[in-house]
Design a protein around this nucleic acid. Sequence first.
DNA 1: CGTATTGTTGACTAAAATAGTCATCTATGG
DNA 2: CCATAGATGACTATTTTAGTCAACAATACG
Lengths: 149, 149
Amino acid sequence: MMKVSTKTEYGLRCLLLLAKQEVGHEALSITQIAARERLPKQYVQQILMRLRRAGLVKSIRGTQGGFSLAKPAAEISIGAILRDLEGIPFQHTCDNFNKKNNCGHLSDCSIRPVWQMISQRLWDALDQIYLHHLIDDEATVGRTLAVEL
Amino acid sequence: MMKVSTKTEYGLRCLLLLAKQEVGHEALSITQIAARERLPKQYVQQILMRLRRAGLVKSIRGTQGGFSLAKPAAEISIGAILRDLEGIPFQHTCDNFNKKNNCGHLSDCSIRPVWQMISQRLWDALDQIYLHHLIDDEATVGRTLAVEL
DNA sequence: CGTATTGTTGACTAAAATAGTCATCTATGG
DNA sequence: CCATAGATGACTATTTTAGTCAACAATACG
């Protein structure tokens, strides 16, 4: 449970790299991004495609093409990124068990509120952190998040 | 990410069943527990063994044997249960990437505080919910958790 | 024009984690 | 002593994750 996949970790790192690019700078190519973050190029490609469909990055084709953020870093929340790359957690727990017909607590399950509660708390927090909060050194970001939330 | 495994879901349900047993009642056998919760018997066994080693339930062997809570339901936190059945989330994210040597942000990673923050929030919440909070109908438990946290 | 460069698509494979089973053993009450 | 129930460890099947491959499409530049 609650293990972050490489897809999310890599995706977040790529987005952060793009966020650190100066405004007006050319887009970064997949090759550049993968090299700078030391990640498998084709996997990065897959992830960026996904982020593009989610409207988080935009791309330009052809020579001199590449990727850049679709919106200012101050408008891209970590919650939005995680919702795209990880999907919604806890949400499906009861549904899955229902489908398999192996839950005897369909109508009244006192465990369900636990998942709902922690899910809500988690997203409340993640939706308040934006990419631009992370454009700083680790210690500073740590302090920012502690204050922010 | 953050998908609850059947191990956790089942384990929690078994514990809740045991918590609902009247004090002084005999222990419930694996067969009884599995039947009541409509779960695979041998899987339930595996889970209960794990919970026993973690000191959350105790067992009696032989005829008339079975399982019961090792402590009062008011002293068993959901956090403790999840730590046993799911392990600690987020914790290993960076470690894993370090081992594979594919993270270029070992010494200074501004993403790390995000995982640390949500991990802490999650456990803070889970450690405040106890098994006895869940011995009620869904609506009531929902209200209890909203007040409690 | 045409070709090198870069993104786009969808299917594919390998490895790891999850979900669950099996066989064999030990203890206890009747 | 035997039926009942827990104890142990290895095993298998399924699903998810992680990552690759091949063929295509657009664009800049000479």
